[in-house]
Amino acid sequence: MGRALFRRLVWSLGVLFGVSLLIFVLARVIPGDPARIALGPMATEEQVEALRRALYLDRPLPLQYVEFLRRVVRGDLGFSTYTKRPVVEDLREYLPATLELVFVSGFIMVALGLPLGIVAAHFRDRWPDALARVLALLGVVTPSFVWAIFLVLIFSYALGWLPVMGRLSEGLSPPPRVTGFLTIDAVLARDWVVFVDALRHLALPALALSLSGLGQAARLARTNLLETFAKPYIELARAYGLSPFAIALKYALRPAMAPTLTIMGLDFAAMLGSAFLVEAVFNWPGLARYMVQATLYKDLNAIVGTALVVAAFFLAVNLLVDLVVVWLNPRLRIQEREGI
């Protein structure tokens, strides 16, 4: 297991390296002088030249990249020409907001999507199945920002149940920053008012973001479960008199889970991408706004830094899913152990 994990880690680092090179080059071929954009039309030529030097833009591209790599290994992503702060500091501020949103969405996807699929498979071709399938399909085919707008219209404007924007209501002060996740920090500070308020703010964007993955999870769980239900070992489990609950939730679920999880992992990782649009609708102070501003201002370090973080998240999620799948599937587990 250890060796396989190591191999995958090395592979992930390689992918990350490739992504960094690609983004690094792409960001630099967009027309426009980053230094001029950053300083504005009133800046003198000397000031622009100084900033270009500070950004290493006066050197050949390969040298710029080598310099970039040297800084990255020290954990330095350079400074942002838009916020005038180190990119690492910006990420520390905006990334937790987005991650909190994505994690809650992922939780909703698993907590509602899987049971929906299980219910559908259990009541195959009866009304609960039909209902679940329609819901799942609606979730899959509707883009998350459309859901975001619908949800805001219904739950915020029409019913007035939930807040429309931001992470916290005005007048509440955020808890001392530990993780950057408002909910976790609130729990750590025993500040239940803030905790509930943060959850209320999370509800709509997280739901909007989760629905497409949720629908996909339900559909996959249903399909894979039905396929498993038809296997001889499930009929045998019935012949042994094992309870229908144990059969559905244990003996059929585990073999059906591995293919479902692989796709769910991809959907979860893709949420970070969809989050950009949902964040725009809910005015969520996350990575999306930062990334959009960075691109508009041709803020090179911010663009590359954000892209690296997104890629790293994607790779980490996939690695985790692979590990869970191996754990669920004894055949793979034994292969890993024997180093095949």
Partner: peptide, 9 residues
């Protein structure tokens, strides 16, 4: 071979 669940010992 097909009558035993592949994911349980």
């Amino acid at each position: 071979a097909a009558s035993l669940n592949p994911t349980f010992s």
